[in-house]
């Protein structure tokens, strides 16, 4: 049942985000074409000055747009995956989803996993559209070379020094960093899910406002917990000598904190869905 939920949620996201991403890639190619036109002196000289001016302007605007586009598309995807949880569970679509023969823990997990999958896809699409619009194969090759050089430097040439700074081998640090980002994303998304579930309890006629209010309240509470936690971590790291140990304590400590917050909010969200669902 969980597999089917994940599949259908993926398809549902694809029905909205898929066309949006295709349009974005097409616009990126168009942008590339306009920029190419603008650099062809022979073509620009042969068209009317007003038209050449428009091409130049369009080319500049599209270049700026595609530098900002990755941020915009990431923001759009984040809003979408949060909105989808609300729409699919707490509006009319919830009449279908909440009567499926499955437990709320599965519903929430399928949404959470799809949120992660679609954010990763979005990062890929943002990178691809940026490359299509303003990137160059030569530039890409340079970037890849630089990345490779950095990897060689970090993993092979300066292994010992990096190990001292980070407290662990670089490969383990990369894994820890990825785990940390994953935990942060899970905590961010489930915070919104909880706020949406809680919001429909406190504001029956204004569920969205209720959710935003709940999120603000939760963010304040989370900050207090995080500050207290960092204070405790600070006390611990004061007693350790090396930079690496401080780095490790901070990174792993925060990952554990995010996991704990995620677990508590996951439990709270599914409990509300199970015991206090209010589809009016």
């Amino acid at each position: 049942m969980l597999g089917k939920l994940i599949k259908h949620d993926f398809l549902s996201n694809a029905r909205f985000l898929g066309p949006a991403y295709i349009v974005m890639l097409v616009i990126a190619l168009l942008g590339r074409f306009v920029t190419w036109l603008a650099t062809r002196k022979a073509i620009m000289d042969s068209v009317a000055p007003a038209f050449a001016h428009i091409i130049n302007l369009l080319s500049s605007l599209l270049t700026v747009a595609f530098v900002l586009a990755p941020l915009a598309i990431l923001f759009m995807a984040a809003v979408w995956v949060i909105y989808r949880f609300y729409k699919n569970i707490f509006t009319d679509e919830g009449y279908l989803m909440n009567t499926l023969p499955t437990r709320p823990v599965n519903l929430v997990f399928s949404k959470l996993l799809n949120a992660l999958i679609w954010m990763l896809i979005t990062i890929g699409v943002a990178a691809l559209s940026w490359f299509l619009a303003v990137g160059h194969l030569e530039g890409l090759r340079n970037i890849m070379d630089q990345i490779w050089d950095t990897i060689v430097q970090l993993f092979l040439n300066n292994k010992e020094a990096i190990h001292d700074q980070l407290g662990v081998p670089i490969w383990l640090f990369v894994v820890e960093l990825l785990v940390f980002l994953l935990c942060w994303f899970a905590r961010f998304t489930i915070s919104w899910y909880f706020a949406i579930a809680f919001g429909q309890l406190i504001a029956k006629n204004h569920k969205v406002l209720g959710a935003i209010g709940a999120y603000i309240g939760l963010a304040i509470a989370s900050n207090i917990v995080s500050t207290a936690f960092m204070g405790i971590l600070g006390k611990v790291t004061d007693t350790v000598a090396s930079n690496g140990a401080v780095m490790q304590t901070t990174l792993l400590g925060n990952s554990v904190l995010f996991i704990l917050i995620t677990a508590v909010l996951y439990w709270a969200t599914t409990s509300i869905m199970k015991n206090r669902l209010n589809l009016d």
């Binding site: 549902s12 029905r15 909205f16 009319d92 679509e93 919830g94 009449y95 279908l96 009567t99």
Partner: peptide, 11 residues
């Protein structure tokens, strides 16, 4: 269950 609401996803 047939609800009185339209639960179908537009897309």
């Amino acid at each position: 269950y047939l609800p009185e609401r339209n639960y179908l996803e537009d897309r």
